[in-house]
Each structure stands twice: as structure tokens, then as C-alpha cells.
């Protein structure tokens, strides 16, 4: 059994579940809107980072990416859907790889477009304040943002497969992503820099002074994601469907 038909099937599943394309639309709309608002607001913060200000819509927007990953997997854990899927594709590792690919590709595509739109929208408001940004920094921010959103969606997908519940995965991730970032904020250093969301978000800043750079930060997030996906795949292969 080859990979392409399984991927095709998983892609059709995502496309034909109306809430999933809707979640990607929400990702685009929320991120762009919040970036535009951030770009238009007055700031007197001396540590103002124009790149992060432009891409700050990702902070609320990533919730949509996380929901997308969780929902795409959790739809398999209702009323025997997983049994039907695995009866059609008994190679569970291959099936889960196809599922993850079918989640990653649309999030990456929408994530890149979203980051670009957010940057453009925010720069319209920032005006001269953003003139210091080099084109290299802006490309890095947009590409990094797309990768970051993809990794977060896959992290949610892996956790959902492990916990066999989308609600379970979201109730772990959303407090993790939202609360930890807001409560601990910029003050704490050290270990919190290595949390999956904070590590990956370094790529959204023009300047960074922590232990992680933009790409090494994304690599740390990628390790978290890989761990979640492997744990999900392990659970799927080991347990009765």
C-alpha cells in the first residue's frame, strides 16, 4: 500500500469537514486583524520590536492552528471512525504519517500567506517605525512564522492522538500556550525559553538576546513536536483501535 492514496484520502477528509477549512480562515483573519491593530496603536515602549509588533497577531492566531491540528485528529476518535479508517489503511504508522502531512501542508501554506498579510497590514500602521527592518529579517519572520504555526498544529495533532481526545489536547495546550506566555511573560529566562511556544517565537523578533536564536528556537519547537507525534504514533500502534 503506497503513501499517495492514503494522503489523498486524508486530504479529502480535511477538505470535506467544513469546520477545518473554517479554522484556517480564522487563523488568517485573527492573525491579520490583530497585527493590523498592533501596527496602528501608539507605543512608547523603549524595547519596542517592530518585527514582533507586526507579527504579534500570531499570538491569538496560533490558537486556530492548534485547534486545526487537534480537530483533524480528534474527528477520528468519535463513534468508531478510527476503526473504519484503520480497516481501510491497516498500516497505522503510514496512516498517521499521512494524517500529519495532510495537516502540515495546508497550515504551512495558510501560515505563510497569513504572516505576509499580517506584516503588510501592520507596516501600513507602523509607518516609519518599521523602516529599520531589513528585507532579510522580514523574510525570516514570515517563513519562520509559517513554520512555527505548522509545528504548533502538529504538536496538537500528536497530543490528540496520544490522549485520544481533542478536548484533552486543547486543555493541555491552550493554557500552556496562552497562560504561560502571559503570566511568565518576558521576565523569566532560563528553562521557560525552551517551552515549545516560546522557543519557536524567537523567530518573530528582530532582536533576541536569550540562549536561543530564531532557527535554533524553531528547532527546539520541532523537537517538542516530533516527540508529540512519536508519542501519538506509538499510542496508535500499540493500542486496540
Amino acid at each position: 500500500m503506497s503513501f499517495a492514496p492514503v494522503l489523498h484520502s486524508e486530504w479529502l477528509k480535511i477538505r470535506t469537514l467544513r469546520s477545518l477549512p473554517g479554522t484556517l480562515l480564522a487563523l488568517f483573519a485573527a492573525t491579520t486583524a490583530f497585527s493590523a491593530i498592533a501596527g496602528g496603536s501608539e507605543t512608547s515602549d523603549p524595547e519596542f520590536d517592530p518585527l514582533f509588533m507586526a507579527l504579534s497577531g500570531v499570538m491569538p492566531g496560533q490558537i486556530a492552528a492548534v485547534s486545526f491540528g487537534a480537530t483533524a485528529v480528534s474527528s477520528e476518535f468519535h463513534g468508531g471512525a478510527l476503526r473504519l479508517s484503520l480497516a481501510a489503511v491497516p498500516r497505522r504508522g503510514r496512516w498517521f504519517a499521512a494524517k500529519a502531512t495532510a495537516i502540515a501542508l495546508p497550515v504551512l501554506a495558510v501560515g505563510l500567506v497569513t504572516a505576509l498579510a499580517a506584516l503588510v497590514a501592520a507596516r501600513a500602521g507602523l509607518g516609519d517605525a518599521a523602516n529599520g527592518l531589513t528585507s532579510g529579517e522580514q523574510v525570516r519572520g514570515v517563513v519562520g512564522c509559517g513554520i512555527y504555526l505548522t509545528l504548533m498544529a502538529l504538536l496538537a495533532a500528536g497530543l490528540t492522538a496520544l490522549l485520544r481526545s481533542g478536548a484533552g489536547a486543547l486543555s493541555v495546550l491552550i493554557p500552556f500556550v496562552l497562560v504561560v506566555s502571559f503570566v511568565i511573560g518576558d521576565t523569566a529566562g532560563g528553562a521557560t525559553d525552551f517551552l515549545p511556544d516560546r522557543a519557536g517565537q524567537v523567530v518573530l523578533y528582530e532582536t533576541y538576546d536569550g540562549s536561543l536564536g530564531p532557527w535554533s528556537g524553531l528547532a527546539v519547537t520541532a523537537l517538542w513536536t516530533a516527540a508529540a507525534l512519536l508519542a501519538g504514533a506509538w499510542s496508535l500502534r500499540r493500542r486496540d483501535a
Binding site: E10, L12, L17, S19, G80, A87, V89
Partner: peptide, 24 residues
């Protein structure tokens, strides 16, 4: 195995098309 296996938000045709695609 289970009549509830089809996702409620999908149409019957789409449900069967996703299954068909996986086995070419």
C-alpha cells in the same frame, strides 16, 4: 462495525469518497 463511524458533518458521498481514495 458501527453505524456511527461516519462523521456527522460530512455528506454520505464525501464519506465514501474519502474511503475509496485510500484504497485507490
Amino acid at each position: 462495525l458501527d453505524a456511527q463511524a461516519a462523521h456527522g458533518s460530512r455528506t454520505a458521498r464525501d464519506h465514501l469518497r474519502t474511503l475509496a481514495a485510500s484504497n485507490r
